[in-house]
Amino acid sequence: MHPEVRKYVESVEEKFRRGGIDTRLNEIECMFLDQVFGPEFSFNFNGLHAQFRVKDYKGGNRFLDFYYESGDIRIIIEIDGYRYHVDGLTAQQYDDHQERQNDLVLSGRWILVRFTANMVMKKPMLCRRQLVQAVGKCLIVAHHCQISTVDHLWAKRKSEIVSLAVQRGIIKVQHVSQRFGVTRKTAYLWLQKLAHDGSLLPHRPTNRRITGYSVPSGTRCHEGTGH
């Protein structure tokens, strides 16, 4: 066993003892740490929690074999022994076990990876590959969420700028800069973007350079009536 794995196992079991829990990591769980997670993460176990306790929707305690969190990466790792599921559980207990997994995955941005004891013992490279794929999927999901958040932020900002233009009649770069605490260059780019999509109209006295922006007449009426 790798020295860092031994150190991690000892720290986990010491934590259990301090909490009054008589629990040890079993042979397969230690093998997972030594042959799968450890090599793939350079034996850095920061962010990895063993026998992690969570609350289900009924308020009961549930335990995950492993839970890994680092930045946007949130992975539940379950390792199932063959006899554990075939001989060790009743049908009702096995249903409850599966229900636990569904509750956790549906409760947030979690990725669930399940390995069997046989996979850990005989196919550690396959387990490592799937673990890396789970990390990649977490990052992809997080990226899409960030895009959604940025789009939402721009929609809100756009609404505020248009409302400000309705109030003032003509809105200028300095107005946006002061309102949002951004540079004049950023304010100018925002106004240009809104002019491009038709939300604002450039104001050009005597057809010269743009001195400000106003809302189209239909928008002004719409905003003014509060409909």
Score class of each variant (00 low, 15 high):
Asn61Glu: 12
Val215Glu: 02
Ile147Arg: 14
Tyr94Leu: 14
Lys156Thr: 12
Cys221Arg: 14
Ser42Cys: 11
Ile79Phe: 02
Arg128Lys: 14
Val105Gly: 07
Ser214Phe: 01
Gly20Cys: 09
Asn61Leu: 11
Arg204Gly: 03
Lys122Asp: 14
Val36His: 05
Val5Glu: 10
Asp103Arg: 05
His222Gln: 14
Phe63Val: 15
Ser214Thr: 14
Lys122Pro: 01
Gln92Asn: 08
Gln178Asn: 13
Cys30Val: 12
Arg62Tyr: 02
Ile77Leu: 10
Thr219Phe: 01
Ile111Leu: 13
Leu189Gly: 00
Thr219Trp: 04
Arg179Phe: 02
Val120Pro: 03
Ile79Pro: 05
Ala117Pro: 04
Lys7His: 13
Asp197Cys: 14
Lys156Leu: 13
Lys158Tyr: 00
Ile147Trp: 04
Leu201Cys: 07
Val166Asn: 11
His97Asn: 06
Val86Met: 12
Asp96Trp: 02
Ile79Asp: 02
Ile76Thr: 10
Arg128Val: 06
Lys185Asn: 05
Lys123Arg: 15
Arg62Val: 10
Val166Gly: 05
Phe115Ala: 06
Asp197Lys: 04
Asp34Pro: 08
Gly169Trp: 01
Ile147Pro: 01
Gln130Tyr: 13
Gln101Phe: 11
Thr186Val: 01
Gly198Tyr: 03
Gln174Trp: 04
Leu112Gly: 03
Gln178Leu: 06
Lys193His: 03
Asp197Glu: 15
Val86Asn: 08
Leu112Asn: 11
Met1Trp: 07
Gly212Thr: 05
Met31Asn: 05
Gly81Ile: 04
Glu160Lys: 12
Thr116Leu: 08
Phe66Ile: 09
Phe37His: 08
His49Gly: 05
Asp56Ala: 06
Phe41Met: 15
Ala134Arg: 08
Cys30Ser: 09
Gln192Tyr: 02
Pro202Ile: 07
Val173Phe: 00
Phe37Trp: 04
Lys193Trp: 00
Ser159Ile: 01
Gly198Glu: 05
Phe43Asp: 10
Pro39Gly: 10
Leu191Gln: 03
Val141Gln: 12
Ile170Glu: 10
Trp190Ala: 03
Leu139Asn: 12
Arg100Cys: 00
His227Ala: 13
Gln146Thr: 11
Asp197Gly: 02
Thr225Tyr: 02
His49Lys: 15
Ala187Pro: 04
Lys193Glu: 13
Gln35Val: 10
Val54Glu: 03
Arg114Met: 06
Gly71Arg: 12
His2Met: 07
Lys7Asn: 14
Arg6Val: 15
Ala50His: 09
Asp151His: 12
Tyr67Ser: 11
Met125Phe: 08
Asp197His: 03
Met1Glu: 12
Arg74Glu: 08
Cys30Asn: 12
Gly59Thr: 05
Gln178Ser: 14
Lys123Phe: 09
Gly81Thr: 05
Ile111Met: 12
Ile21Asn: 00
Gln174Ser: 11
Asp80Lys: 08
Glu78Lys: 07
